[in-house]
Every structure is written in C-alpha cells, then in structure tokens.
Design a protein around this nucleic acid. Structure first.
Lengths: 131, 131
DNA sequence: CCATGTGTATTAGTGTAGTAATACACATGG
DNA sequence: CCATGTGTATTACTACACTAATACACATGG
C-alpha cells in the first residue's frame, strides 16, 4: 500500500517538477515518514493528484532508483529500500546539497569568504537546536 | 587606458562565456589588479582578442554595471568604481541570510549536525575560487 | 560636419532542459 | 487469456538561455 505523502509542486517556482519531487521524497525517506518496504504512490496516481504528466513522476522515480533509495518491483511499483548504514547519512546530505550549492553560488557572487559564510551560518544552525 | 587583463574563456566548459568574464573581472577588481578609475578593455577590443561576439562581452559588462562594480562613461567605456560601503558591509550578508535560514531549517529537520553541514559546504565554497 | 570611438537595443539563430503524448513490456488476479 | 495494474522507451513539443548579426545612439577630436 502506498501511503499518502505530503507532496506539493510549484510549476512556476523555476525548480523543475521532477527535481522537486525527487528532493521531497528523499526528505520523506530520510525523515522516516516513508519506511523501508513501503511503496511509493503509483506513477499515474500521483500524476493525477498533482496534475502533472506521468512521465515527469517517472523521471523523479527513476532518479531515486538510480541513487538506490528505491527499487523497482515489476508489476507492483517502487519500493523503498532499507538504507545502507552509510547511505542513510549520505541520503540526508543529498537533500541539503542543492541548497548548499545555491549558497555557494550566491556567496561567490557577493565575494564573501568561506569564513564569513560560516560565521553567518553557525549561529543559525545552533540556534535552531533547542526548540 | 585599458590595462591588459588576464582573461581567458573556454567556450566548451559548459559555463556561459559572459559569466566566465563576469567572474574573472570581478576577481580582478576584488584582487586590486583593476583599480578604481581604470577602464575595462573596450567591448570590440576584447571581443576580438577572445574571439567572441561583442554582444557577449557587453552582456558581461552590463551585469557588472548592474552590480555597481563598474560605471558606464559615455563615449569612453566602462570605468571601475570605488568600492561602495554596501559592497563590503552587512548588505551583502543580508542577501545570503534567507538562504542560510533555509539551510538551517532543513539541516535541523534532517538531524544533521553543524559539523556535517560545514563539511558539506566547505568544498563548495572553495571550489568556485579558481582564478 | 565627419570619422571614429564608446556601449547597446533589437532581432534572430541554436542548443538543450523540461515536459508531455503515445505506445509498449511486464506482472498480477480473475 | 484478458482486464487491469505496474514503470518506461520513444518521440515530439515548448520554453528559455546563450550567442550572434545588425543597426543604432551618443561622445570625442580633427
């Protein structure tokens, strides 16, 4: 059974739909809201719910499969894999990567040194720990 | 007078030419190799030297002008500006802040330690410093 | 005024990423 | 076997980024 996921896409956000899906599902898996053995919603189901083309869903799924987060079971769908010890941490970092790349690009654009960026980021990271 | 700059573009690098130029010139200014009051090479001059279209040079120049690093003097060319207070101060960091907050929020959601985030971000920040 | 020097607005060509439409291969259950 | 369920290969369409060709506006010096 495919659980109901909190998935939402903004076609006008500039971020490709398949990538939004990829990142969100990655998050859901990393956060444990999608347990190993569970199946992702079927391509057509999700396509209808989000009003996007099935092939776009399929593309997101295929990328998740390529990354080993999910496995194709013929005739059934995409099953969430048990995380490898290292894959768990790796998967979580993958989620953050796009954001960090954007940070790096922006910092560079502004000629901000790595130290300045760290100094700015550190309090934010530690601040949000106790709530 | 336009000093001779060390500018080099690789059309096949995947990075747009205008952006290569923008970044390199930005570097030259930040590094002091291009002092305030000096002029950039003329669009046509540089276009011929690098074997690219003048409009591509112009695009890079215009972006630098938009960012306030350079000023258009009619009939003469692009003159390097004196660095403005905002170019060095808090203003630049304010731009980065929303992004960093998002990073912090995501990292927290994924239970990533600050150290892990730094380890991930550092190579990205330093990677783009090649000049 | 004219020749020559700036940068650029406008327009068009080109490549490619993203998306979509169609048809297919395979699996399952009746 | 057939109906219905998976995902996807193939193909085409579309939008946009990048680059380029042309013609223009303005400034300067003879």
């Amino acid at each position: 059974m495919a659980p109901v996921l909190f998935l939402q896409v903004s076609p006008a956000s500039g971020v490709p739909i398949y990538r939004q899906l990829q990142d969100q599902i990655r998050s859901q898996i990393a956060g444990g809201r999608l347990a190993p053995g569970e199946f992702l919603p079927s391509v057509r189901q999700l396509a209808q719910r989000l009003a996007v083309n099935p092939m776009t869903i399929s593309k997101a799924y295929s990328l998740l499969e390529r990354d080993g987060l999910v496995e194709l079971i013929r005739g059934q769908g995409m099953r969430v894999n048990a995380p490898t010890p290292s894959a768990n941490g790796k998967a979580r970092r993958q989620v953050l990567l796009p954001l960090l790349q954007q940070v790096a690009a922006t910092a560079r654009q502004l000629s901000l040194s790595p130290e300045e960026v760290f100094a700015l980021l550190e309090p934010l990271l530690k601040e949000s720990k106790h709530d």
